[in-house]
Amino acid sequence: MLARRVIPCLDVKDGRVVKGTGFVDLRDAGDPVEQALRYDAGGADEICFLDISASPDGKATIVDVVERTAACVFVPLTVGGGVRAVGDVERLLLAGADKISINTAALATPTLIDQAAARFGNQAIVVAVDGKRRPDGGWEVFSHGGRTPTGVDAIAWCREVADRGAGEILLTSMDRDGSGAGYDLEFVRAVVDAVPVPVIASGGVGALAHLADGLAIGGADAVLAASIFHYGHHTIAEAKAYLADRGLPVRRVDA
């Protein structure tokens, strides 16, 4: 049986980790490579970099960060943020990423998903979907880092991206992101039931119980979190131990 995955996410801007960190013993807490190494050693099943650089220089920097990470981290690496064209996907894959996450560009040009999946395989293409609850029910997709409403129904969009060849969906609730109140479990469940591809739940984790709920109640294949790990509230190993206690199949590195 496949283990449910725990994925720490690092926000990277101009080659530096943006959020603070609880890793007090790191030589350079702002270095994404060093943080990724720490997560790798701690038992992360995958590592996610979200590049939030706005400048062209920042975009070049992430390729270097990916190269240096892939040279020393031996778990899968997902990279997203500002991926606009097949060329961007290729550059990051050749730098050593395993999966590339596409968000706003997929909404602007849905055929980008088809092209990238045909060229690099479904397993390499993740589509990130940022959704927000509608007052009248359902969820609406937001683009540009969750700032711009699109009018697109999130469940329909998730079905479409899976049809177009996305190998995985990274689903973030804009209502919960940064709240610490837990995943929007209804949103996760609705997407899990709608698509045949794995779903990564994201947005809102403030406690280990939220990770377990995302998997057990939401039905997600993987759970992604940032702050809970960054600020040192919990280690990956603690998260794995907690999930195992809740009866969820996880990969334990300390066992």
Binding site: M1, L2, A3, R5, D45, N122, Q123, G167, E168, P196, V197, P198, D221, A222, R251
Partner: peptide, 13 residues
């Protein structure tokens, strides 16, 4: 069944 997804992707025992 629906829970078995293809590609088989992830950590397995």
């Amino acid at each position: 069944h629906h829970d078995i997804k293809i590609p088989h992707m992830g950590w397995n025992r």
